[in-house]
Computed example of a mutant assay.
Amino acid sequence: MTRLVMWDIDRTLLVSGKAAHQAYATAFTAVTGVAWRAMAVTAGRTDRDISAEIFAAHGIADCEPHLDGFFTRYADEVHAARHLIAEQGHLLPGVRDVLQALAGRPGVVQTVVTGNIPAVAAAKVGAFDLARAFDMDIGGYGADDVARAPLVRRCLERTHAKYGGPVHPVVIGDTTFDVAAALACGAVAVGVATGATSAAELARAGAHAVLDDLSDVDAAVAVIAG
């Protein structure tokens, strides 16, 4: 059985600084010609969901005709500023060691389920040299759907298509959105209180396990690997 470990990125693995938000603003104005006003709340949400809110707040009721062009330009802007992700941001405690420890376990496959579109997810993990830990091809991404649970489902579908056989899924994230998505898809939900959501809130949302962070590598691996 494959132990499929699905990581959220932002505030679970790393903090990326302001580069992505600036790229959002630049791409939005470049594609729409509308002056940028403000960013939406992003924690736990998908880029499709965030974009719909931002476009509406800037007077564009239907974002769909613009999304392909916007996501392409957004990805280009993030890659151009990729050096700033590492300069302004940082890895969260224990992340590199936990990823390496899990990578050495037979039957464990690690990927990402993130609100980011694929190219931006790749830029963020690549900025900290984490890409080798993940099978990015099977991930669930913010371009897949507005809601979070369908991202987990898409990841499971891609995993079955690539690896076959039974899968034991685990979702790791810092928000109640991550926990809810895991539970909706029959996955083990592991909350990590490294974002704005407290350990108590993650537990109340139904997380099977909650960690303050990943600094206790052995404890984190035991929870995640089962």
Score class of each variant (00 low, 15 high):
Leu14Ala: 12
Ala207Thr: 04
Pro169Thr: 09
Thr42Leu: 09
Ile60Gly: 01
Phe28Trp: 06
Gly164Trp: 03
Phe177Gln: 03
Glu87Pro: 03
Thr111Ser: 08
Ala122His: 14
Leu91Arg: 12
Val78Gly: 05
Leu214Pro: 10
Glu77Cys: 03
Met39His: 04
Ala133Arg: 02
Ala75Arg: 03
Leu202Asp: 09
Ile224Gly: 02
Ala122Gly: 11
Ala222Gln: 15
Cys155Asp: 04
Gly107Ser: 07
Val108Arg: 11
Gly126Phe: 13
Val98Glu: 15
Leu130Trp: 11
Ile50Lys: 03
Gly17Ile: 04
Val41Ser: 00
Ala219Pro: 08
Arg37Glu: 08
Glu53Arg: 04
Phe177Arg: 00
Gly94Met: 06
Asp174Met: 01
Ala187Tyr: 10
Leu202Gln: 13
Leu156Ile: 12
Ala219Asn: 09
Glu87Lys: 06
Val31Pro: 03
Tyr24Thr: 03
Leu151Pro: 08
Val120Leu: 11
Leu99Pro: 08
Cys63Phe: 09
Arg45Trp: 01
Asp62Ile: 02
Gln22Glu: 14
Leu130Ile: 12
Met1Thr: 14
Phe71Lys: 02
Ile9Glu: 00
Thr12Pro: 02
Ala61Phe: 03
Gln110Lys: 07
Thr194Leu: 07
Arg158Gly: 05
Cys155Met: 06
Gln110Asn: 14
Ala196Glu: 08
Val223Asp: 11
His90Phe: 05
Glu77His: 06
Val188Arg: 13
Ala219Trp: 12
Val5Gly: 03
Glu77Leu: 02
Ala205Met: 00
Lys124Ala: 12
Gly139Met: 01
His208Arg: 09
Val120Ala: 10
Val190Pro: 00
Val41Ile: 13
Phe134Lys: 10
Cys155Ser: 06
Ser198Cys: 05
Ala184Leu: 15
Thr114Cys: 07
Leu84Glu: 01
Val15Lys: 12
Ala81Phe: 05
Phe28Met: 02
Gly140Ser: 13
Val95Asn: 10
Thr2Asn: 13
Val152Ser: 14
Glu77Val: 07
Ser51Lys: 01
Asp174Ser: 03
Arg132Asn: 07
Val217Trp: 11
Val167His: 04
Trp36Gly: 00
Pro93Thr: 15
Phe128His: 11
Ala187Leu: 08
Val15Asn: 12
Cys185His: 10
Ala86Glu: 15
Met136Phe: 09
Arg148Met: 13
Thr111Trp: 11
Pro169Glu: 08
Ile117Ser: 04
Ala19Gln: 11
Ala161Arg: 15
Ala38Tyr: 05
Glu53His: 03
Thr46Asp: 04
Leu130Glu: 14
Asp97Ile: 09
